[in-house]
Amino acid sequence: MLLNRLKAGGPAIAKQGILVAFILFMIVFSLMSDRFLTADNIMSVFRQSAIIGVMAVGVTIVVIGGNLDLSVGSMLSFATVLVVDLHDKIGPELAIPIMVLATLCLGAINGFLIGILRLNSLIVTLGMLSAIQGLVLIYSGGQNVDIVDQRGTWFAIFGRGSVLGIAAPILIFGLMAIIFHVIMSTMPFGRKVYAVGGNPTASVFSGIPRSRVVFTTYLISALCVAVAAIILGSRVMGSQNNVGQGYELQVLAAVILGGTSLLGGAGSILKTVLGVLMLAFIQNGLILMGQPYYTQWLVTWVVIIVAVWLDVAAKRGRLFSPIA
């Protein structure tokens, strides 16, 4: 299959632009710093990208379905504060399921407003971003929360544990990515999400329950946030009440970098993972090169625009936009 694509020539390579760019960056960074390509460093980059990565999996599915989710950042604050706060009150066995349920409820609200009522997803999730941030602050009374007994709780395994030398966050991220990649690429539900995102009208004309499909994508997004919150809460053993602020746009940046079109109907979880890792490696590589951490934002700026530009240019068959 890969061979066929290579034979198809230029456009096919443009389609794999993210992979090419990823490899280029890896080569450049490994030439610039000999610490870059060490197992330790790679593992630490993976671990750091797990939270954004898990969230990006959910957002990718929403975006493939033709919508946006800007509420994941404050939803992450909500879920993390909730699970950390409940941990000491009712124990992790109960705290986790309650938090997951509560987060799914928020996802259901998004799904209802966007999937069933067909309201504009950008504005709805923007409103939810604000409303959920308020909820978190009301719930926590503006205080940060933390877990008192940080050593004696099994809750620590999600953020700090490891299996066979691989950190738990990496395993969770990998597992989530694989599960949802399989769902999206091989199961009927995935097919329906692509169809609804690609052409909602034609999907309805093919008997696909469009409302239900969109609703479910928001449930999945909320579930991913809940999982990310478990990792985050477990790693930090506490939470600021605005811990997820700004995550929504970073997550979206990774999704876009992975080549998922904001118009819906196209994209893939694995490419999103590449997008997430690329952003993480850029950050890491620049730091190893002795650059301050914020230079990554400058590089990200250029990388995102060039990546999407090439993608758009390949589709229209010319580099510059035809508008006068």
């Binding site: 692509y194 169809a195 690609g198 052409n199 009208t201 034609a202 999907s203 004309f205 109907g265 196209a266």
Partner: peptide, 9 residues
């Protein structure tokens, strides 16, 4: 194109 096919598929 609008109702019959998902052109991207």
């Amino acid at each position: 194109k609008e109702q019959g096919l998902v052109l991207s598929m």
